[in-house]
């Protein structure tokens, strides 16, 4: 575990996370075709490609500022409801970590508190709660595990199990809610994209760069 997160470190972190989502765009779109409007993969790819296009500028900023720029980029470029939802997540993470010292690695407590605040913001944005077959169903248990001291492998396992646990849920929010009971039996695409991001970031934090599930 390094004790600083400089521009090169931030660059690698953002680049790896973005690449992991972009690489799974087809899978995310296939999940969304089953219960949504079939654009989640394409939308997330467009958002993270826009982040990569500005990678040097984002990485040069302190982490909180960089996170806010990623959030704004997602809001502007994604297009589907996932734009404002992921945008709000990153914007709030940035706001919550505002006091972070330059190039410092946020502590577990700081990260857990920031993620907690970001989850509250995402709930408000989507008028949604845990248990409604959304990205919150992954973010909330991961936040609890993080706060509880879980290591990188445990966080990855938690995210994986939480995404899988959206399969039997019935969608209450978003386009999938139109399907009612027919949304049951499919994994939520937003839960899966959250799992990809978390497992990728956990792998980096755990020293296995890029070894996402």
């Amino acid at each position: 575990m390094t004790t600083t997160l400089d521009a090169a470190g931030r660059r690698a972190l953002i680049e790896t996370a973005a690449a992991a989502v972009i690489a799974r765009a087809d899978e995310l779109t296939a999940l969304d075709q089953a219960i949504g409007d079939g654009d989640h993969g394409l939308n997330m790819k467009r958002g993270f490609e826009a982040v990569l296009a500005d990678l040097d500028a984002i990485a040069a900023k302190p982490l909180p500022e960089g996170l806010k720029q990623i959030g704004t980029t997602m809001v502007m470029k994604v297009g589907g409801a996932s734009g404002p939802l992921y945008g709000t997540l990153f914007l709030q993470l940035g706001k919550s970590l505002a006091e972070l010292a330059p190039d410092a690695v946020p502590s577990r407590a700081e990260l857990a508190a920031a993620l907690k605040a970001a989850i509250v913001a995402v709930k408000a944005r989507g008028k949604s709660e845990v248990g409604q077959k959304t990205l919150l169903d992954v973010l909330a248990p991961v936040q609890a595990a993080l706060a509880g001291g879980a290591d990188a492998a445990a966080l990855t396992a938690c995210a994986h199990e939480a995404a899988a646990a959206t399969v039997p849920l019935k969608a209450i929010r978003g386009r999938a809610s139109f399907l009612g009971d027919r949304s049951i039996g499919h994994m939520d695409p937003g839960a899966r994209s959250s799992e990809i991001l978390i497992s990728t970031l956990a792998a980096i934090a755990g020293g296995n760069s890029g070894a996402a599930a």
Partner: peptide, 12 residues
């Protein structure tokens, strides 16, 4: 329409 020209909406 979304920012890529497909069906969707754009904050911008």
């Amino acid at each position: 329409g979304d920012p890529g020209g497909g069906l969707g909406t754009s904050v911008e």
